[in-house]
Design a protein around this nucleic acid. Structure first.
Lengths: 244, 244
DNA sequence: CGTTAGTTTGATGGTCCTCAAGCACTGTGG
DNA sequence: CCACAGTGCTTGAGGACCATCAAACTAACG
């Protein structure tokens, strides 16, 4: 298999376990039907005749919940290689909404295909379950961050998590990554006001640990930042399966 | 089937879908091996020869994460009928820890039995997946609460969620329920200090909406409380399956 | 009857929000 | 080519919300 042509999802899953040739073909076939979403155009699932999940092939998405007073809580940020609406493909949940942050290309995976994959390749099924499990671990970490970390650690931790995730799909390295999020996105993700996010970013910059300017996150002092944020990446990659 | 002998898990799942006689038997068989945990004795999964999940039959548990500075974030509260360590039965995740809040009786469900159940009864499998999905919806709602609700709404919302969950297993009604949580538990769950929780509870009491005293939550004004907390129970029960 | 766990209240201060305004950059239409 | 609007970033001032420290009180329990 030619690795340079690997889709983000294939890159991500193969970092977790060795995929067989047929697995690669299955993942490649998922790319057949692709949808494009443009910015600020809500990705809606309701009322579709055929229920489907998506896999992001390019672009960023956020899943969020709106409250009656107009405030928004971003629950999760999706980057290429991430699933989108996997649960809502199986359950008719009144769940969160999705909104593209950039222009997005997403592969459509019909529920039937997904279930077929599960029976065709138990290994791939395990890999997908791993990805889902990882998402939930991130959700827990997110909760801990908002509940029990101060603003600076919260921002630092989030930027580091993004770094780790992006590296897995080849969209960044130890020195940094491109990031289309605005300070409003950061605020709504971390339970802070955008204004406070700005001040926090300034302080982190002054501490010469990380900068976030012009759509690019630059990690100046890897080690000190990780130490400061008490970032422990184990929740992202130390998950090994019992079965398979 | 005699409903009075129903276990909490059976009660909960049957509220969601009609279970066949054989399903009831499977659930009953899960009760064969039961473990007792006493208060403050951590429930640990690591290093066990045979991996297993638990189903709470009585007592309350909390799952939490500790931080290096000593603060604790409670991620979820488990009540009778809830699963415990379902994911960590399948994945070797470095996940959160569990601690009993009261003395706890938990049915041990070996991973093998669980997987066997999935193939034996697709309907029961769907019901279990529903329960898991519901847990994640609660996690999301928890995140939104901590991120974007003020302390009073946060407490009110949490007490209402507990009410709804407990009613499903017959441990409470519209007027209230017994609750073994301390104000420290509430604080660590909601990202508040226990002291502030106390003040908030006093205010809610003075507003004559809800009281929490002597281990009992009394809902004084159902309607006004729901309105105040902007509590929308749909994330708890409006989830219907696409399949099955 | 002393000990411990949990609740309650007061005082003080810090973190973070809100309001307000200025700045930089981008794309658009006259 | 430039005015202008729109979006996002930046900084300041003032204040609300909630944490922390301290201490008294109550209930449960051996």
């Amino acid at each position: 298999m030619i690795k340079t042509k690997a889709t983000p999802i294939a890159q991500k899953l193969s970092a977790y376990m060795t995929l067989s040739d047929s697995d690669w073909v299955i993942l490649k076939n998922w790319q057949e039907q692709t949808k494009i979403f443009s910015v600020d155009q809500d990705i809606v699932h309701q009322g579709q005749a055929k229920r489907a999940a998506y896999v992001l092939s390019s672009g960023w998405v956020c899943s969020y919940k709106l409250q009656s007073d107009g405030t928004r809580q971003i629950v999760d940020i999706q980057i290429p290689g991430d699933f989108l609406g996997l649960r809502s493909a199986v359950f008719r949940v009144s769940d969160h909404s999705f909104m593209p942050i950039t222009t997005v290309a997403a592969a459509v995976v019909p529920t039937d295909d997904l279930l077929a994959t599960f029976s065709k390749s138990p290994k791939l099924a395990a890999a997908i379950l791993w990805a889902v499990s990882r998402d939930e671990a991130m959700l827990v970490e997110h909760l801990v961050g908002i509940g029990r970390r101060d603003a600076e650690r919260r921002v630092a931790h989030f930027l580091l998590e993004l770094a780790a995730r992006l590296q897995l799909v080849g969209m960044g390295d130890r020195t940094g990554y491109d990031c289309p999020l605005t300070q409003y996105h950061l605020g709504d993700t971390l339970g802070l006001s955008a204004i406070h996010v700005n001040r926090v970013l300034r302080r982190l910059r002054e501490m010469e640990m990380v900068t976030f300017q012009h759509g690019h996150v630059t990690i100046l002092d890897d080690e000190r930042l990780i130490d400061f944020a008490e970032f422990d990446a184990s929740y992202l990659d130390q998950m090994t399966p019992v079965l398979g």
